[in-house]
Design a protein around this nucleic acid. Structure first.
Lengths: 223, 223
DNA sequence: CGCACACTGATCGTATACGATTTGATGTAC
DNA sequence: GTACATCAAATCGTATACGATCAGTGTGCG
């Protein structure tokens, strides 16, 4: 046989719905009907229900008793809250991952950031966004604390779900972003302390958040 | 009627098991058998299963496919990771809640911290721990970002589950803790910036974490 | 004596079935 | 024309049932 049937149907349902939300195939507000998804997967509603509840815990879907589930609506508040959460956790994850950032890691990160710079010249925002996601994954991916790593990943998944619905994109930040990445890598190359790395990474995230806040006519983040 | 039957059975199962884990009635390693819990609640296994999976997502229980669920084992690593996560998130939540800390709030917090000081003199570690939990809840409880608030609460629930199994208690930190609380309240009373509040609150948490690390012969936290 | 293997009891995973609840529509009174 | 009561369809929530899987046990063979 090709693939080993290790995954449960509940897991399959989770993967399917999750991916579709992150991809944007299911837009915010989309009604998730248990029976429909169950039919599509060729299983009964019980595993689907479990998957939906898991996605609810992740904040990707909204669930109302006896009514059903919908893909979570994206509004400026939700976006703000997600960005704020990431602003706090991701830099910490990055700092905690400092030990794992060796020469090979640095080379890869620099290569990726250079590719992002190239995207700027090519006016390719789609590739830029994809690479930016990859770059940040490189930053926090080696975090040795699984709880923190999980929180960061969930945050990025939520962001992806929002971006897929083209909620927000701030082109004016792109150039500064690449430069801040560069500065951060420089810090890391010079063996800055984890605390310094965290500060710089948070600054980077705060700048992105504040650019959004400014565009929405709101005051900058307090922290 | 007394209570309105708004809660589903799944919710009831979640509440029951959750409370027992946090209380310590179910110790780490305790085997959670769906059928047994279902009988106890007078319902079938389906809602219980859903509750267990939710607790798994929270990190309170460990789940193995086709084998079953057990209350998550507490080891030094898990404790460390949980403390580290709280060290990062709770101070941020506190800083974000700064706006809501008015005179009335300050009075209540001071009263609680004074009561903690009294517990020190009375050598009452149980009341001290309870009040410490309350004090920190006061600190982060007004955080306007629901995601962050949720993360902090989950962290404290995990801590409670560990403490219930008397995993750790560091009496030598108690006195310093009260004094650090005092200093933090002083900062807040003097209208320090959220960033300053976050720094002080993180210092407080880092001290607690480092006291544990030192007692375990490990190096202090990098951030 | 130790190891491999089949067997068994317990438990999980999911399908099916049915009652409970909500929603939206229809009809009627005002 | 509007507001409200009533009803039907859709959907959810859970009970029950049964097949699937795993840990533990006993037996036979090397």
């Amino acid at each position: 046989m090709g693939a080993v049937m290790t995954a449960s149907k509940s897991e399959a349902a989770y993967q399917l719905v999750s991916e579709r939300i992150v991809n944007g195939a299911y837009s915010p507000g989309y009604r998730l009907v248990l029976g429909t998804i169950a039919d599509e997967l060729g299983c009964s509603v019980v595993p689907v229900r479990e998957a939906i509840r898991r996605l609810e815990a992740e904040g990707l879907v909204h669930f109302t008793r006896n009514v059903g589930a919908t893909v979570a609506h994206v509004d400026s508040t939700l976006y703000l809250h997600t960005m704020q959460t990431l602003m706090i956790i991701e830099p910490a994850a990055t700092a905690l991952a400092a030990d794992a950032m060796d020469a090979a890691w640095l080379a890869e990160a620099r290569k990726l950031n250079d590719a992002m710079r190239q995207c700027l010249e090519d006016f390719d925002p789609v590739a830029f966004t994809r690479m930016n996601t990859e770059f940040h994954k490189l930053l926090y991916g080696q975090c040795p604390n699984p709880h923190i790593l999980d929180l960061v990943q969930r945050g990025w998944r939520r962001l992806a779900a929002m971006r897929a619905s083209s909620f927000t994109h701030i082109p004016s930040r792109a150039k500064a972003s690449v430069e801040e990445h560069e500065a951060l890598l420089e810090l890391i190359a010079n063996h800055a302390t984890p605390a310094q790395i965290e500060t710089a990474a948070r600054k980077h995230r705060a700048n992105t958040l504040n650019a959004y806040l400014a565009s929405a006519g709101m005051p900058p983040s307090a922290i």
